[in-house]
Design a protein around this nucleic acid. Structure first.
Lengths: 365, 365
DNA sequence: CCGCGATGGGAAAGGGCTTGCCGACGCGTC
DNA sequence: GACGCGTCGGCAAGCCCTTTCCCATCGCGG
C-alpha cells in the first residue's frame, strides 16, 4: 500500500560512492539485480545460480552465492510465482481453528503440505457461508495450487450451487480442489460415512438396552447433522425402536449449543435413557450441561457423540463416540488435491466411521 | 513448478486464426487484458475500475464490471503484490495446530487478521528450531507484511541469535514482526508472566496446606518451562517450603510427556501431596497417567497446570491452572505487528497470569 | 588449422498487474 | 471567445523475477 519506493536517487552506485557512503543501506528487500551487480554478473546468471535452473560455471557461481549471502538476499516468492506462472501455496478453508474437529483436519493437511515443502494459506469462515464463498475467491486470486475446503455442508441449495460454481471457476483456472465431507461439488471429496456410522451407533446403543432416545442435533441446515440424524433414525428403526417419539432438539453446532440443548432437554421433562449428540463438541457441552444440572452420566442418562475428537481422551466419563480419522481425512484431502493430475475426473474417498463404546453409555438392566 | 506453459507455438494469434478456432478458450486464469479487451477499454482503465484506485466514467466503468463478471475474472494477487510492492498476507508460525495452546493463539491472530481483510500463511514447526528459522525465511520470501511467531523459546543461545538475526533481516526488508512469549529478539513481544504466575500458584498451593511438591517440567532447553519452574520454586521459598527435596522431572512438553512423567513419579516411590505440571497439556497427560495407575486426583495427589487451555473445561476433576488469555495474546501480537508503524521501537506487552483454583487441588487437613 | 557440438553468459522479452504522466475533453468564468 | 480547471482515457514505464534466444567461447577430432 504505502509502498513509497524511494528509488529516484538509486542509480548504480559508482565505486566512489561506495567508498563515500558505505553504510547507507537502501531499505526494503534486497533485489536480485543488486546481488547480480555485487557479484559482477548479469541478472540472468544470478537467477540461474539461485534457482538452479541451469548450470553456471564455477567462478561465477561462487560469487553469486557469496553475494547473495552477504546481502542477505531472499527471493521474492510472489514475483517468482508470477514469472513462473505457478505458486507453491495451498489454500485451506475451515470453520474455526479453535474447534478440535477442524484443527485435527488442519493438522493432517499441514503434514502433507509440509512434506512437499509448500506453504498454506489458512482462512476460517466461522460458519459463515458467504465468507466461505469469498474465501474461495481469495484463494483463487492468490492462485493457490490446491484448495482444501472443510466447510459448510449446508443443505442450502443456492449456496451449494454458488460454491460449486466458484469451484468450477477455480478448476477452470487450473486449480485443484478437494472438499472434506461434501461431495457432488465436482471436486475431489473425502466423505466420512456419517449415516452409516450413526446407524451403527444406534444399533450398539440399542444392544445396550436403550429404547428411549433424544438427539441433540445441529442447525437444521447442516448436512452433516442431518445425515447423522437420518442414520441414527434408520438404525433405531432397524432395531425395532419406535421412532415416533424420538426427541430431536436443534441447536448450534458448538459446545454452548450442546450445553443449552442439554438444559432444554432436562427442562422438557422426563429424560430418555440415552442422548446422542451429533458431534462431539456438542456432546462435551451436553456433558457439562448435565453435570451442571446434577444429572449424572451415565447413571441417569447415557451420552454418545460423533467424531472422536482429541479432547475426548481426557473427559470423565470417557465419551462413547463414532471415531473418524480426522487427521487422515485432512491428509487424504491434501493428497487428492496435490497429487492428482489436473483434469482427472474427481475422486470421492469414503472414510470409515467406527463406533467406540466408552463409559458414557451404560448397559441397561 | 512443472509450469509447462504451452506457448512454444504461441505467437500472437492473427485475426484469421481467431475466426478459425472461435471456441478454443485458453485454459488458465482470465487476464486483466482480456477483460479490458472484452470491455473495449485500455488495460489501465480496467485496472482502475477493478481496483478502484481512481474514478472512471460511467460508460466504461459499467462495461468493465460486466466484462469482469462475465469472464469470471479474478485478479492475480501475486502480481498485484509485486506491482504494488506490498502484500496483504500475514505470516504465523506456531508449533502445532493440534496443540490447544497454539490453536487458541492462532485463533486470536486469525480474528485480527480477518478484521483487516488480510490472509494468513500458517506454518507449523513441530518444535523443530531449524524449521522455525527456515519458516522465517519462507515468510520473508513471501513478503508477508507482518509475521507472528509463537515459537521455540529455547535457551539455546546460538539458535536465539540466529533467530534474532533472521528477524532483523526481515525487519530490514521492511516487515513487522511480533513474537509471543519471548522478548529480547528486537521485535514486538507479547510475554506472559510465567514466573510471576508460577510464583502465585506456588503461594496458593501452599496456602492449601501443601508442603511436598513435584514438578513435571518440559525439556530443559525450553525457557517457558524454566521460567515457570523458577517462579514456582521462588514461590515455595517465599512460603518457607524447603526446596531442597523438590522433585523435578523433565519430559516432553506434550500430553504423552505428562503421562509418562506421572508414571515415573509414581514409580519413584511416595508421592508428594501436590504436583505442578508446567503446562496444561502435560497436566492432562499426568491426569491420565495417574488415573491409569489408580492414583486419585485430588484425593491421593493434587494436580495443577499452567495456561488454562480450553479443553480443561471438560475435565474431571476440573484442573487448577494459571490462566493465560491465549486468544488475546494472539490478537495482541497481531495488533502489534499490524498496527505499529515500521521503524517504531519495539514494544513488549506483559500478559497477566492468574491462578484459578479448581477441583484438582484440595486443601490438606 | 578448421569446423563441430557443447557450454555458459547476457540482452531482452516476457509474466500480470499498477500508476505516473500526458493529452483530450467539457465546463465555468471573465 | 479564450482561458483555466477538473475529470477521465490511454500510453508506457515500472514492480521483481524467469526464461528464451543468441552469441561467444572452448575443447576436440579431423
Amino acid at each position: 500500500m504505502t509502498a513509497a519506493r524511494e528509488s529516484p536517487t538509486g542509480r548504480r552506485a559508482t565505486p566512489d560512492e561506495v567508498v563515500g557512503a558505505p553504510a547507507v543501506r537502501r531499505s526494503g528487500p534486497v533485489l536480485l539485480s543488486e546481488v547480480a551487480a555485487h557479484a559482477g554478473v548479469s541478472l540472468a546468471t544470478a537467477s540461474r545460480v539461485l534457482s538452479g535452473s541451469r548450470s553456471v560455471g564455477e567462478p561465477h557461481r561462487g560469487r553469486v552465492l557469496a553475494a547473495a549471502q552477504e546481502l542477505r538476499y531472499t527471493p521474492n516468492a510472489q514475483a517468482q510465482a508470477v514469472a513462473r506462472g505457478a505458486s507453491n501455496v495451498v489454500g485451506l478453508i475451515i470453520h474455526d481453528v479453535l474447534d478440535p474437529y477442524f484443527s485435527s483436519i488442519a493438522g493432517g493437511v499441514m503434514r502433507q503440505v509440509e512434506e512437499r515443502e509448500l506453504v498454506v494459506f489458512l482462512a476460517s469462515t466461522h460458519s459463515d457461508v458467504d465468507r466461505e464463498l469469498e474465501f474461495v475467491q481469495t484463494m483463487r486470486s492468490h492462485r493457490v495450487r490446491a484448495l482444501i475446503i472443510c466447510g459448510s455442508r449446508t443443505t442450502d441449495r443456492a449456496h451449494n450451487e454458488r460454491l460449486a460454481h466458484e469451484l468450477e471457476g477455480y478448476a477452470a483456472a487450473g486449480g485443484q480442489a478437494a472438499v472434506i465431507s461434501q461431495d457432488r461439488l465436482g471436486t475431489h471429496a473425502v466423505v466420512p460415512q456419517n449415516r452409516t456410522g450413526a446407524r451403527a451407533l444406534a444399533r450398539e446403543l440399542c444392544r445396550l438396552g436403550h429404547r428411549r432416545f433424544a438427539v441433540l442435533a445441529g442447525p437444521r441446515g447442516l448436512l452433516t447433522s442431518r445425515d447423522r440424524l437420518t442414520g441414527f433414525r434408520e438404525g433405531l428403526v432397524a432395531e425395532g425402536v419406535d421412532v415416533a417419539d424420538l426427541q430431536v432438539l436443534h441447536g448450534e453446532f458448538t459446545r454452548e449449543g450442546g450445553e443449552s440443548l442439554a438444559a432444554r432437554l432436562i427442562a422438557q421433562g422426563p429424560l430418555p435413557t440415552c442422548v446422542f449428540a451429533v458431534n462431539d463438541v456438542m456432546a462435551l457441552g451436553a456433558l457439562a450441561g448435565f453435570r451442571a444440572a446434577g444429572v449424572r452420566v451415565p447413571d441417569d442418562v447415557s451420552l454418545a457423540g460423533f467424531d472422536d475428537i482429541a479432547p475426548l481422551r481426557d473427559v470423565v466419563p470417557s465419551l462413547t463416540s463414532v471415531h473418524l480419522p480426522l487427521e487422515e481425512m485432512g491428509a487424504r484431502a491434501a493428497q487428492l488435491a496435490l497429487d492428482t493430475e489436473p483434469q482427472t475426473t474427481s475422486q470421492a474417498v469414503k472414510v470409515h466411521a467406527e463406533v467406540v463404546l466408552r463409559d458414557s453409555t451404560r448397559r441397561l438392566a
